[in-house]
Design a binder for these strands. Structure first.
Lengths: 259, 259
DNA sequence: CGTACGTTTGATCTTTCTCAATAATGGTGG
DNA sequence: CCACCATTATTGAGAAAGATCAAACGTACG
């Protein structure tokens, strides 16, 4: 299928998951002008304070949103997975208030700001879908405030792992019963407001308790239900369509141990 | 002036600050249907899991966004000030992922979801303005992740105070050189991921160091510049229009000690 | 005037950080 | 394919920030 190999097909799939788009809408997305780039880990998609003229769509690979404090500490705000548009805020806001950097090697399709902006108002269904995506992103960030503000280290890490698993699953990116964590323990620490030393100890603890199993950076879930409990995780804030708060068929398939 | 007494005039002012609206646009906002309610502290504007049919606009008084963890801890996600629309996410997303509660006694104007939704797509300037407001809200939440994840107690509280001061100032709600903090120390703790005991000690510390002065819940800023430094505060993430990152004229007036 | 709520203070305990060192891993050039 | 280097993971010991527990004190409101 040519659609599956179109660089924006992942993004389109995400839109479709949230809003019914007719053929014209779908074509409008696929006919957006774009330029593809290959990027190395650590390279910037957006710099804080910059004024991006295009919106990057992650074709493959992973990225993260990040802010630095005055004394050089890093806080990771969000993880971007393939199919995510990383500059939706910058379509309507001028100067970027945070940076986006590649976590792994990957591919990005840059779409001009104006093209997307125009679609939002000329095609209400696309507009609604894009607005929903930005709102869901905001919802995830709110949950991260809770995670970092009111949960202890073990809960935080369990929660982040659960969230990542469910998001990957919703895009069909889970392999078997787990995934390869695309980040170092130090980056996981920056996402959870901890130190890498402590992250290491907590991961070992989770493993010792049979809540996860690890090999290299691959994480598997021998007891998915228990991990969710430890992480105080409930998927509702992800606003994944077609799931009532219980698990989807696919999730049931790929995450056994779920009643 | 009749405009100033219209319940939605604060909201309109906020929109205008971000996007040029012509007379038709402005009238469209002021002619929105609404119903006014008076609310007591603690009463809910939105419950987590609910499906709001209207968008509340804070006319006066303060509110907060909040989520609870499984073991009953509360995390405050955002503070809403007069003029804020508290349900913008719920215009396009169905089930609410967090609760909104009154902090003080206050007044809310409820606008039907559909009316606002329609304006977004029929009046692109209003649409852009509303999208910008939701994006700025998201930007503030991102900064809160940084605050709670990577700053110590003193920095966190200083930062929250600075943010609150600047946001109030941008709406003309600062009195003299300070404001009345509309929340208890316990609520401030829930906003910063601390305990009320520790918040109390930190406030006293800030006061002892001449960074703030307190009388009841009134906070003043004897050394605004120093407080910003302690809080690692920079206003850029608030995306307040017409300010280059330096201070506005009004701010200069109302917050002396600013070079 | 008393009760409920918020603030302040002290003493002690835990979680997590910091510093430091060692071991494993992955990628690179020869 | 192998040796080497840089990065990442792991472990230990001690220190610190903040939590917890408990009590006293103020203040506002009915």
């Amino acid at each position: 299928m040519t659609t599956d190999t179109h660089p924006l097909s992942g993004f389109l799939g995400d839109l479709i998951a949230h809003e019914r788009l007719n053929e014209d809408d779908r074509n409008a997305i696929l006919e957006l002008p774009f330029r593809v780039r290959k990027l190395d880990p650590g390279s910037y998609l957006v710099r804080e304070g910059s004024l991006p003229a295009q919106c990057g769509v992650l074709v493959d690979g992973y990225a993260y949103r990040q802010k630095m404090t005055g004394d050089g500490a890093r806080q990771i705000i969000a993880i971007c997975i393939p199919g995510d548009a990383v500059d939706l805020q910058n379509i309507f806001l001028d100067i970027s208030d945070h940076a986006v950097q590649m976590l792994t090697r990957g591919t990005v399709a840059d779409v001009p700001r104006e093209s997307l902006q125009q679609l939002v108002f000329t095609r209400p269904h696309i507009g609604r879908a894009i607005i929903q995506l930005t709102l869901i992103e905001a919802s995830i960030v709110r949950e991260w405030v809770v995670n970092v503000g009111r949960r202890d280290a073990r809960e935080r890490i369990a929660h982040v792992l659960c969230e990542f698993a469910v998001r990957l699953e919703s895009r069909g990116l889970m392999s078997f019963n787990g995934f390869e964590l695309p980040m170092t323990q130090e980056q996981l620490a920056d996402a959870t407001g901890l130190t890498s030393v402590h992250v290491n100890r907590v991961l070992k603890g989770l493993e010792a308790d049979g809540l996860i199993s690890r090999w290299r950076r691959h994480i598997h879930f021998p007891d998915w239900r228990a991990l969710q409990d430890v992480g105080d995780f409930s998927r509702t804030y992800l606003h994944i369509p077609g799931e009532d708060g219980g698990a989807s068929q696919t999730l049931r398939r790929s995450l056994p141990g779920l009643a």
